[in-house]
Design a protein around this nucleic acid. Structure first.
Lengths: 186, 186
DNA sequence: GTCTATAATTCGATAGAC
DNA sequence: GTCTATCGAATTATAGAC
């Protein structure tokens, strides 16, 4: 009965470690998230983490893979782009803590900052290019500044007025901002 | 010649330590900024840092005192509020790295996050209250989300399109956003 | 006022038994 | 596959000589 024995299969253990790593990196940042703590959360020995991932850097890279899952913006009515992106982003932040782990780690860990730059350049950049060919680079940067600013103040700093807003209020306030960044005059 | 001797006066040494601490905390965050490195920057022995500030926590508190120096918003023409605040903030970020030190540290250090909440609640909150009595708490939170988002993407993550914008472009893009957050309809 | 020496922790990583 | 034991390095902080 290998599959039901106390010794989990390799894939299960590896997935458990990755999930625990995501939580710890999201909660504590790169430096404070220790391999010992991650192993304890996963219910295994710290040496197992090293065995499966080699070192802390590789563990972080495996735990911090992320897809914004942006919808096809060319299918969205032109005047609803801002609201749609705002709604999508807040749902994405709430549903997956990987982005939070990346944000927390990026402040002190250059490799995490690189990853965030890659994500926004490779995923948000082309999506904006398709709908706003007039200076899409600057426009996507502005969108990132407001979206990441919301995440920073809401989830990391927990500024009370921002943390207290419900999703509809966030969409109502940020939607027009993103809309102007995407389609407004330069 | 006590004032010109190699042994600096107490005040000079303390100020030198505080300046070096600000730089290190701004560049590296709370954990990675070591007392050893701060002492080396200040050209003194690590034990001196402990002597003057007791522990790392108190050193950070002393290095992270900050005033937004917001102008009296009641004297600003009502339709220029957004642009004025955007211009003021970017100048403030560029001219004093203390806010950057606070932001970097706040991500992993709860006391630093507390300080940022205090600064925005005590300094931005009342200023907004004076000009936007209709839900000033939410409005000031929204302003903080965009202002801090700009700082995050421009100085910490260094997203290329945001880091490349000159001050005038930042004011032109963010001004209308802040203006709407302050004076727009709910 | 300044520095040496070191205590007390904590961490990432390795070696090897079972 | 899993765990024990431990190394070597780095850190904050303390005690005390000069």
């Amino acid at each position: 009965m290998t599959s039901t024995s106390k010794r989990r299969r390799s894939g299960d253990t590896k997935a458990a470690i990755r999930a625990a790593a995501r939580e710890r990196f999201a909660a504590d940042g790169y430096d404070r998230a220790t391999i010992r703590a991650i192993a304890a959360d996963a219910g295994i020995d710290p040496a197992m983490v090293m065995r499966y991932f080699g070192n802390k850097e590789s563990l972080f890279a495996a735990a911090a893979e992320f897809d914004l899952r942006l919808p096809d913006l060319s299918q969205v009515p032109h005047d609803e782009l801002g609201a749609r992106i705002a709604a999508h982003m807040i749902t994405r932040w709430d549903g997956d803590e990987t982005l939070l782990a990346l944000l927390r780690a990026a402040v002190t860990h250059p490799a995490a900052a690189d990853r965030i730059r890659e994500i926004f350049a490779a995923q948000l950049g082309p999506a904006v290019q398709a709908i706003a060919p007039d200076d899409p680079v600057t426009r996507s940067g502005l969108v990132a500044s407001q979206v990441l600013g919301l995440a920073l103040t809401r989830y990391v700093l927990r500024l009370p007025p921002v943390a207290a807003m419900d999703k509809d209020a966030v969409v109502a306030w940020l939607g027009p901002t993103l809309q102007r960044y995407l389609t407004g005059p330069r």
